[in-house]
Every structure is written in structure tokens, then in C-alpha cells.
């Protein structure tokens, strides 16, 4: 069942298309992440659903009801802000109770509901503290509790983790996911962090220039990016631009794959560092390369490789298990091979 439905939503600021004819369906109970660089329109999209931004055209339905002319305060939504936006003059408990008390629910019901929510977001010990007396992670959990208080049809999260430090971020991300699955709410989650999006979302919509480039489950997005932007933005990839020769593209002896459809002269090949095989020693096969820099990262070691090609040097990364990399020194001459099955190639627009 569709919980939120967007049809041809468009928003322009001056000459900038913040949202360019966006259509999107979010299934009930689904967590959909909007992923993209800053300025891609993901926040504008979220704020349009909230009614804080008014699209120039298009329709937004929540729970089957067109909300285009509906004020924010009358939409069945909950929202978690990047900066928490907790009311400073209210305690954690009062913040969570706020949406219920402005709706004039009976005191007893409010108390019961808030107690449940405090428990849900694990803030019972902090219930009577003020926002400036709790940590960032606690503040964001409080914001989550407040957003969920009126049992909204859709929960909107605007980069909820970006103001937190790395350690708290991972934990809180899993926390949000746990709570969302527990209360089975539909959620729209904006982030610019691809690993966060992959970790938390049922589906990810990659946005760029106000358009959705790809909408897919995380694994598909990772393995099979459908556009060159999605390939660059998701996962760290090597990108090599190559000339099309006889319908194929090749990086010397490292790989050779058929050119993508539509590529007349040049194409760009993407492959992940872990798919680059590096071998040293006399028996090794493949393209000769030089190890310019070796970076030890614990379980893996990242190698910066330089490959002489006509007209210059191509540079790419390879990730090796550190045990295998131990025998290869910085400066060594090695040979590399890339498995063609893991290469995604896209035409270079002229």
C-alpha cells in the first residue's frame, strides 16, 4: 500500500530547479532514503512533504489524501530536524508532549503516551532535563520521540545525524531504524552520507540536480549503479575515462569490456578498489603498474597505483587484504587485473 505519493512535483528558485518533475511512491512502513550531494533537492523534497516548502506544481498525497492546500500543522506528519529544534524552555518530557498538548488531548492520555515514548527512545532518566542539559544524541532521540508522539502517517527525517560525531552517529542510526520498524511508521530520510543511507533504508533514491537518478534497494544500488552519477556517488570507485575502439574499451592489459550503448567515442569505466587484483613477482600477469603510496587501514591496505598510458599516467586505487599487501612494498612494480564482471561503463556525454 502506498503511504506517500508524489506526482510531478516541481520547485524552482529563480533559474535553479530544486525539484524537477519528481514522482515517487513510498510504501507503507517503508523507510526510503533520499541520498545526494548538497543542493540536489533532497531537503526541498522533504520540506515539500512537510508543507514547509510549496512546490510550483505537482501533487503530494499522504495516506491517499491530497495535501497540496493543507497547512503544515494539519498534515499527518512528524519531523526530525538536523539541528533537533527542541524547544529550549521545555524539558524532554514537555517537548515530547508538545504535539499532544497543542491538540488538547486529555492529560492522562498525554502522560501515558509520553511515558511510552520516553521508554521507546530510551530517555526515561533524562525526562526532566532541559535540552541544553543533554547530549546531542539524546537531543536527537528526544526529537524523534516528539516527532512520533502524534502517531504520524509519515515520519520525516532531515539529516538527523549530521550534527553528531561519528561514534554516536552509527549507534543512533541503528536506533532510529529499530524504532521505525517497531512502530511500523513510513519514513522519509534525507542524508548525504551513502553508507548511512545504505545501512538504514529499505530503498534509496539517489538525487542530483532536482531529479531522482536511481531508485533501488541498497544492494542493487551498490552493485549496479544505473547512471554515471550514481556510480560516482555511491561507494568509492575508480573512474577511468577511455576511448572506444572497435566497440570496446580497455585499460591496456588490465581489462577490456564492450563499450556501453550510446558511447560513440569515449566512455567512463567504474570499478571498486576491492575488485582490483594486484600481484607482484615474476609469474604475475596483467597491466604493469607502480605502487606510489601504500596506506595501511587495518584489515585492508589501500594502494595508490600509477599506470603509464599513452599521453600520461592513469591513477587508481586498489584495496587489498593487509596480509596480501604485506609482501608488496611502496614503489614496487606490480601487475594488475580488474574482473570485467565488476566493471560498469557509461557513455561520456559530448
Amino acid at each position: 500500500m502506498t503511504a506517500v505519493s508524489l506526482r510531478g512535483v516541481t520547485k524552482q528558485y529563480g533559474t535553479v530547479h530544486a525539484l524537477d518533475n519528481i514522482s515517487l511512491d513510498i510504501a507503507s512502513g517503508e523507510l526510503l532514503a533520499l541520498l545526494g550531494p548538497s543542493g540536489c533537492g533532497k531537503t526541498t523534497l522533504l520540506r515539500s512533504v512537510a508543507g514547509l516548502v510549496h512546490p510550483d506544481s505537482g501533487a503530494i498525497e499522504i495516506g491517499g489524501r491530497d495535501v497540496s492546500g493543507v497547512a503544515t500543522r494539519e498534515r499527518p506528519i512528524g519531523m526530525v530536524f538536523q539541528s533537533y529544534a527542541l524547544f529550549p524552555n521545555m524539558t524532554v518530557r514537555e517537548n515530547i508532549a508538545f504535539p499532544l498538548s497543542v491538540r488538547r488531548r486529555p492529560e492522562a492520555e498525554i502522560r501515558r503516551r509520553v511515558d511510552d515514548l520516553l521508554d521507546l527512545v530510551r530517555l526515561v532518566p533524562q525526562a526532566d532535563r532541559y535540552p541544553n542539559e543533554i547530549s546531542g544524541g539524546q537531543a536527537q532521540r528526544c526529537a524523534l520521540g516528539r516527532a512520533l508522539a502524534p502517531a504520524p502517517d509519515v515520519l520525516l527525517l532531515d539529516e538527523p545525524l549530521s550534527a553528531l560525531d561519528a561514534l554516536v552517529r552509527g549507534r543512533l542510526r541503528d536506533e532510529i531504524r529499530r524504532v521505525q520498524q517497531l512502530v511500523k511508521t513510513t519514513a522519509l530520510y534525507v542524508t548525504h552520507d551513502q553508507s548511512e543511507a545504505m545501512a538504514i533504508a529499505d530503498r534509496v533514491a539517489v538525487m542530483n540536480h532536482g531529479r531522482i537518478e536511481q531508485l533501488a534497494v541498497p544492494a542493487e544500488l551498490y552493485e549496479e549503479p544505473s547512471t554515471s552519477f550514481a556510480a560516482t556517488f555511491v561507494g568509492s570507485r575508480n573512474a577511468v575515462e577511455l576511448a572506444v575502439v572497435d566497440g570496446r574499451i580497455a585499460l591496456a592489459e588490465a581489462f577490456s569490456v564492450p563499450a556501453p550503448v550510446g558511447a560513440a567515442e569515449r566512455a567512463i569505466a567504474f570499478f571498486r578498489p576491492e575488485d582490483v587484483t594486484v600481484a607482484a613477482g615474476p609469474g604475475a600477469k596483467g597491466q604493469p603498474a607502480t605502487v606510489e603510496l601504500k596506506v595501511y587501514l587495518g584489515a585492508t591496505t589501500k594502494m595508490h597505483l600509477a599506470i603509464p598510458v599513452e599521453g600520461g599516467t592513469a591513477r587508481l586505487y586498489a584495496d587489498l587484504p593487509s596480509r596480501d599487501a604485506a609482501s608488496i612494498d611502496q614503489g614496487a612494480e606490480v601487475r594488475i587485473v580488474v574482473d570485467p564482471a565488476h566493471i560498469r561503463a557509461f557513455p561520456v556525454p559530448d
Partner: peptide, 10 residues
């Protein structure tokens, strides 16, 4: 994103 800096409703 960048556009959220624009004046808002309050």
C-alpha cells in the same frame, strides 16, 4: 539544501 537558507515562513 543550499536553498534552505532562503527566507522562510515565520
Amino acid at each position: 539544501m543550499a536553498l534552505t537558507a532562503l527566507p522562510r515562513t515565520l
